[in-house]
């Protein structure tokens, strides 16, 4: 009790102070500018890489670069685990041990929720969780959303100051027309609606697949319930309507999944962009920590919801 009250001069506070001073100097030297906030990810290529027949031109977006980075990291981790898992040890240790613990916790969670279907559901659930987790956390790496091509735009922008060679610093003063903006190489994967929509589609579609696997094609009677339509006319009609509502709720789930993750992450991005212009000193660090927390929570929520919906699909509709 007494000890904790004693004032001790740690070394960390000096680091923090030094970085704050550095930030003050840096923001005076190079004034931060508000980056372009757009919902759509920016294309990095002027012309489409490939043109698919039905889909049309396919551009390389900056979120896809982040996606490739994430894939590489996951691949490396998977390879490490694969190589290390051969040497079986009773006691988990090191990096693999930590990953093992994560997997074990997730598996226990799946087992307690889904029971005997855990083995089937677990890979999807865990992959969604891991992918969302990495996508959310990668966003926090410095350089995301700040380094990129300098693009001349017609509308309002900033002036590009040469740093030598092909390097430019986009900074104040603001110009009303013909300014320059940054098109970042990397942008948080979760701030791309394609990513969240893809995950939501996979989650919802795989829920139906698992429902069919668990209950056969009787599963779809949940969405179009005509079983009681003729035996009990009035309640039958009501049952039909509620089952239609169930069907609609599946589509609502897609939208809900998509925009929950996207909204959280995009809001974080916007917050970061605005805060780092308005209060460039110290405040972004706190926001960064908050973003870390939000990223973890959202990954967990996405995974948990997938798990719960899948478990519900296996258990079937409660008959009245």
């Amino acid at each position: 009790m007494e000890k904790s009250r004693k004032w001790r001069w740690g070394v960390n506070r000096w680091w923090v102070l030094a970085f704050i001073i550095l930030t003050v100097i840096a923001t005076n030297r190079f004034a931060p500018v508000q980056q372009v906030i757009a919902v759509a990810p920016e294309n990095l290529t002027k012309s489409p890489i490939i043109t698919l027949p039905l889909v049309g031109g396919l551009y390389l977006t900056n979120t896809e670069v982040a996606m490739i980075l994430m894939d590489l990291i996951i691949l490396v981790i998977a390879l490490v685990v694969k190589s290390r898992v051969k040497e079986y040890t009773l006691i988990a240790k090191g990096f693999t041990g930590a990953l093992e613990m994560l997997i074990e916790v997730l598996y226990n969670l799946a087992q307690s929720t889904a029971g005997k279907w855990a083995k089937k559901i677990f890979p999807l659930f865990a992959t969604i969780l891991i992918v969302v987790l990495f996508a959310n956390l990668l966003k926090l790496i410095p350089g995301f959303e700040s380094i990129g091509f300098v693009e001349e735009v017609e509308h309002a922008g900033y002036t590009a100051v040469s740093l030598g060679g092909n390097w430019f610093n986009v900074t104040t003063p603001e110009v009303a027309e013909g300014g320059a903006v940054v098109v970042p190489f990397l942008r948080g994967l979760s701030t791309d609606l394609n990513f969240t929509l893809a995950l939501a589609l996979i989650s919802v579609i795989m829920t139906q697949v698992i429902g069919v696997q668990a209950q056969g094609f009787g599963y779809f009677s949940k969405f179009f319930n005509v079983r009681t339509l003729f035996s009990r006319p009035i309640f039958g009609v009501m049952d039909l309507f509620t089952s239609l509502l169930e069907a609609i709720s599946e589509f609502a789930k897609i939208i809900s999944f998509t925009f929950r993750l996207f909204g959280n992450m995009f809001a974080g991005m916007v917050l970061m962009a605005i805060i780092s212009v308005m209060v460039p000193v110290f405040a972004p660090s706190a926001i960064m920590l908050f973003e870390l927390f939000i990223g973890l929570i959202q990954a967990f929520v996405f995974g948990m919801l997938t798990l719960v919906f899948m478990a519900m699909a296996t258990q079937g509709h409660a008959e009245a």
Binding site: A126, T127, V131, L193, L197
Partner: peptide, 23 residues
């Protein structure tokens, strides 16, 4: 304007499936 297009969506879906298989 939302940035959703079928091509990128497919890219994301396939990417996810690859990651799923690998993991």
């Amino acid at each position: 304007k939302l940035g959703i297009n079928v091509g990128n969506l497919l890219v994301q879906i396939f990417n996810f499936l690859i990651v799923l298989v690998v993991l």
